[in-house]
Write a protein that binds this DNA or RNA. Structure first.
Lengths: 243, 243
DNA sequence: CTCGGACTTTGGTCATACCAAATTGATAAA
DNA sequence: TTTATCAATTTGGTATGACCAAAGTCCGAG
């Protein structure tokens, strides 16, 4: 149980919102693990007493914490504490990116950064992948092949194959970025026509990349990936890719 | 002037916050340019009448819009409309990233992605840079050299040199990422010891990268950059880099 | 036309109230 | 004892209305 005592009232600085001192206090509690991950925040009425502010301010504070990803709040439910990670960081971008993708060239720009990113990952993998990494890649490739005739499942295995490149980097930021790309770019491909033929072709592309990595030939791997990505972009209906 | 008529009251869906319909309406106004960039939002009291909701809800709505970067609001001032761009998107990450950097390995992970990113940019520049790009790079390098003995200024010209790699990509997302890196990683270097010697050394590193690009040798350019970055990382006091 | 200053508007905060959904606790059924 | 059930209570979402201080407006003196 949390020690229930009132916070010292901070100097009322006119240029600062009252909510922000509350936000800081709760941030601190989270960082110091006074509020553990997954735990619920105290009720609004409790907090208003503890911080000696109105419920209005408490609510504003939780909104801010929520937008920063430190707490997760569903309507009508008590907000729960959430230790931040790079995934939630990407989640914070959600709103803005959604708008950006509706602007001219937005999708293309984002897709270009994905190509850019994966080229780097693939080159890196080509040069540094361990036995285990290669095995994971092979496994993903096999699963991908097995799903060629399962229209729905192929899409998943396709993503999973690409994801391996991100996981090989062992950098949690990279993995978060992959998830973000899938979230933001994915819907654009969801609606494109699928067929076993296309799946077969995509699988071959994946295989080519994999083999280039096996051969430890970064330039070849890069070329194979670029070809694959360029082809993927061509699949997007113009009506979507241009807007 | 905006046509002053009440919005049709949306079906009161219990599972949705009242604020979100207001948010949608304003988002739409912004996207359709009914509210132009830089313009001020109507007063809260006006909006509460227009949407037939309480001021509480209007305030919540503006907070949400603010956290999405669609409006910019300073305390005591009317929020102003702001067409979103990738810069503001990075700004939205501010809060979370701040926390993440305080976690173990956070700084290192972020720095690694920067290395990763720049390696890609430099390779790309090596292969695709136009005459103008090379000239811009040369100009930045010269400015950097000229500032070797101006302790404070060198830091700026250093950043500016690296920034050129991002601008060469012609992708606004890349440029936003550069700014983000400088914002988040910059402070860690700000406090490190400076000297003309170190500046000289860093300049030589920059020069090496530049020359590799001139020679159109991507592998050499990558090696030069990696050496430079590795050295830079070594400059960070252990006490900071490890936390 | 510029500079102040009085007056009005508006954002920040508080207090209070009501409703409906979520939570809790007691109770009945298995 | 365990589980299913339902009423009582708590709590989040929203609405009102009020007050203050800062920002914005307007007008008259210089």
């Amino acid at each position: 149980m949390i020690d229930e005592q009132k916070e010292p009232k901070p100097e009322s600085n006119p240029s600062e919102r009252a909510a922000s001192s509350v936000v800081r206090a709760i941030e601190k509690d989270i960082q110091l693990d006074v509020l553990h991950d997954g735990e619920m925040l105290p009720s609004e009425r409790d907090m208003m007493e503890r911080f000696s502010v109105s419920r209005t301010v408490i609510r504003e504070a939780t909104h801010i914490l929520s937008s920063r990803g430190l707490v997760e709040s569903r309507p009508r439910f008590r907000p729960t504490v959430k230790k931040p990670n790079f995934d939630t960081a990407m989640g914070a971008l959600e709103g803005i990116v959604h708008h950006l993708l509706n602007e001219a060239g937005g999708v293309k720009n984002l897709f270009d950064t994905r190509i850019f990113m994966e080229v780097g990952l693939v080159r890196s993998a080509t040069e540094n992948a361990t036995k285990d990494d290669l095995q994971a890649l092979k496994a993903a490739l096999d699963v991908n092949e097995a799903a060629i005739f399962e229209i729905d499942k192929f899409y998943e295995t396709d993503m999973a194959f690409h994801r391996v490149f991100y996981t090989i980097s062992k950098n949690p930021i990279a993995e978060a970025i992959h998830k973000a790309y899938m979230t933001w770019l994915g819907p654009r491909w969801k609606m494109m026509p699928r067929s076993a033929d296309r799946n077969q072709f995509n699988f071959e592309s994946h295989k080519a990349i994999f083999q280039a990595i096996l051969m430890r030939d970064p330039d070849l791997a890069e070329a194979a990936l670029r070809f694959h990505m360029k082809d993927a972009w061509a699949q997007i209906p113009k009506s979507i890719s241009e807007n």
